[in-house]
Amino acid sequence: MSLDKDQVQQIATLARLKLSDDEYAESVEKLSRIVDFVDQLSQADTSGVVPMAHPLNVAQRLRPDVVTESNERNRYQENAAAVTDGLYLVPKVIE
């Protein structure tokens, strides 16, 4: 196994995913296989190769600085589970 349970737990926390014990066991096994599989990339000789982040070599288009949006709060908040006075609610955040 190239990954152990601690690593998977750490990844799941970073990704904010709660997993059951069964899911942990399965994830350790399957993620290890995926990692072993993608490890074959290390064979490729990539010295001096520029990483490619976009399939086309073009530049960003820019937008004029114009306000185009109006208040649609009520419509946009229809999908929210908990809203009060226009605020989205979450369990109290302690800073």
């Binding site: 226009g86 609610l89 979450v90 369990p91 109290k92 955040v93």
Partner: peptide
């Protein structure tokens, strides 16, 4: 907001 925080 009681036990909640509100997000703006």
């Amino acid at each position: 907001l009681g036990k909640s925080s509100g997000i703006d």
